[in-house]
Design a protein around this nucleic acid. Structure first.
Lengths: 197, 197
DNA sequence: GTCTATAACGTGATAGAC
DNA sequence: GTCTATCACGTTATAGAC
């Protein structure tokens, strides 16, 4: 078994020396990420993850506390939405829509996985936090308007709407529509929400 | 069908003489609706519903097949979104947002409940069907544009985005924002998606 | 012959004993 | 760390009540 060294982005945590359990935890994380994204939260059991990681089911709980905490720690939206808002603010609407709809980005699938698990309170809290701090607040300081924060939060809401249509309830018409058409219409609308009159 | 005229054995309550099971099913539906909307799908157990309806847990399954089918039959989006698109098409964006944000309707809470349970495949299918047939398709024939269907589906996506922000991940800033501000910004954007240039 | 109640089954997450 | 116990859950088998 190969151990993939995934750097943890959590600040203030010190990695222990060479802990054998670290490799086990990484293996569990990798299996959990694979199965959660492929099958969703409910359909993925602790036993499935443990079997895939070739460890005992009990140590999964022992290391991560609960299935829900493992899910939250594993399916983190931070990396998948990284640099989503790069580029000039004047054309960010279309750029973001293209990244989401057409790109090879995993952000859309991750969003769908999290939204579909939003029945759990802790998952919902993570969804709230990541949406606001990653999709709404970063834009507040970049736009010049008296209602900048309102615009940014409504922008984030609108953005989640498109992602929900594509990755949660699977609107077949939109999934089959030409990417450029969606980019043009929805991107322009998003842009107008942010910097329009 | 059966015509057995016998009072129910429930203590202290007088039930209708005919169609015993119909009254039982109604009681189960009422309890299920109450608990599902108050606590969500996961936190509500068959035993909770049965206790609230003062029936045996087994007959809940016997009458409705499964917890998921009971949920779908109970939390139906049709009624809560009834006549949502009444009124002239030229101002439907603002009107719809006001209906949703204003809080008078139960549609928002119902949407949140369904979305939070979207991890279940059958619930997700119901969400897809109700969103497309109730929020997108009714608008297609009412707008005069070559890309009418695209506009309508993106309109529905945008609308679900606002509802998701308010009833799923609970954007506190939007929940505290003045209703008129949201109506003006988001309603105008929705309107533009539908009938704008 | 339906409708209901009791009990039990299988599976899930999780906690405690070796 | 591993094994086993426990508890809650949805669901089913079975037998009783009308």
């Amino acid at each position: 078994m190969t151990t993939t060294a995934v750097t943890n982005a959590a600040p203030g945590t010190t990695k222990p020396r060479r802990d054998r359990s670290a490799a086990v935890k990484d293996a569990i994380r990798a299996s959990a990420r694979k199965l959660f994204t492929a099958q969703g939260y409910d359909a993925t059991g602790i036993r499935d993850i443990a079997a895939d990681a070739e460890v005992n089911p009990a140590i999964v709980i022992r290391h991560f506390g609960s299935k829900e905490r493992l899910f939250i720690e594993t399916i983190d939206a931070v990396n998948s939405w990284h640099r989503l808002f790069d580029g000039p603010i004047d054309d960010i609407g279309r750029v973001v829509v293209r990244k989401i709809v057409g790109g090879r980005r995993k952000g859309l699938a991750v969003f769908g996985t999290i939204m579909r698990a939003s029945g759990r309170a802790d998952v919902r809290a993570q969804l709230q936090e990541s949406t606001i701090t990653l999709l709404a607040e970063p834009l507040v300081g970049r736009i010049d308007a008296p209602d900048a924060r309102l615009r940014a939060h409504l922008f984030a809401a609108q953005l989640t709407g498109l992602m929900t249509a594509l990755a949660v309830y699977d609107d077949d018409f939109l999934l089959d529509a030409p990417i450029d058409d969606i980019v043009e219409r929805y991107g322009a609308s998003l842009q107008n929400m942010l910097t329009g009159p």
